[in-house]
């Protein structure tokens, strides 16, 4: 059981002492990137539309559920546009929040019903409640493309001039609403730049 920690002196060894440190240094550099990466959100792709006017569109209403939604409707006051569909599961998760916004009359919420069967959409609204002021039925998803929608749900915050101020991808959670959307709405109403 002799301890063999004595190293033989090697005449050829430390010619380039930095070389043996290289793997460690490289690994540390990569680790630093990974650490920074933890704080990044790769799924949130910045929308090129931020700050731009909403794309021109005019969508019909769902059958017997007027009114429909067009670009002009988004002028005049701060509003939210929520892209939803009856086939979308996460939409069900965020839906109660929009019902709350409606009940408390915080901000008008409009719906963009994306690539959906009108009957299925109506049944869905019947079942989970209808928080929307206006709903545009985008059956083919054409308007969705103009808006840069790539997954449902997405939620856009529109300022009083009809420009897109913020975009939220994925279901809106309670903390998203409290920490991001509501402060942004407040900022917009006071005429300030929203942080989001």
């Amino acid at each position: 059981m002799s301890e063999v920690s004595q190293r033989e002196p090697d005449p050829a060894a430390p010619r380039r002492p930095w070389l043996r440190l290289l793997p460690l240094l490289l690994a540390m550099a990569i680790g630093a990137f990974l650490f920074v990466g933890l704080g990044l959100k790769p799924k949130e792709i910045p929308s090129a539309l931020i700050g731009k006017a909403v794309p021109a569109f005019d969508l019909p209403a769902l059958p017997e559920r007027p009114p429909g939604l067009k670009s002009a409707d988004l002028q005049g006051q701060v509003s939210l546009v929520n892209v939803f569909a009856s086939w979308c599961l996460s939409c069900r998760v965020e839906h109660p929040l929009f019902m709350n916004l409606k009940a408390l009359d915080v901000v008008p919420v409009h719906g963009l019903n994306y690539k959906d069967e009108p009957q299925a959409a109506l049944a869905w609204l019947d079942r989970y409640g209808d928080p929307y002021q206006r709903i545009g039925a985008d059956r083919k998803g054409r308007v969705g493309i103009d808006w840069g929608v790539y997954g449902v749900p997405e939620t856009f915050l529109i300022n009083a001039q009809g420009r897109i101020a913020c975009k939220h991808i994925g279901p809106v959670s309670d903390s998203d609403l409290q920490d991001k959307l509501l402060p942004a709405i407040e900022a917009l109403r006071q005429g300030k730049e929203p942080k989001c």
Partner: peptide
């Protein structure tokens, strides 16, 4: 870091 540090120490041997 532990293993590569150890490597930097011991590899020349």
């Amino acid at each position: 870091a532990g293993s590569l540090g150890l490597y930097a120490l011991r590899a020349p041997a």
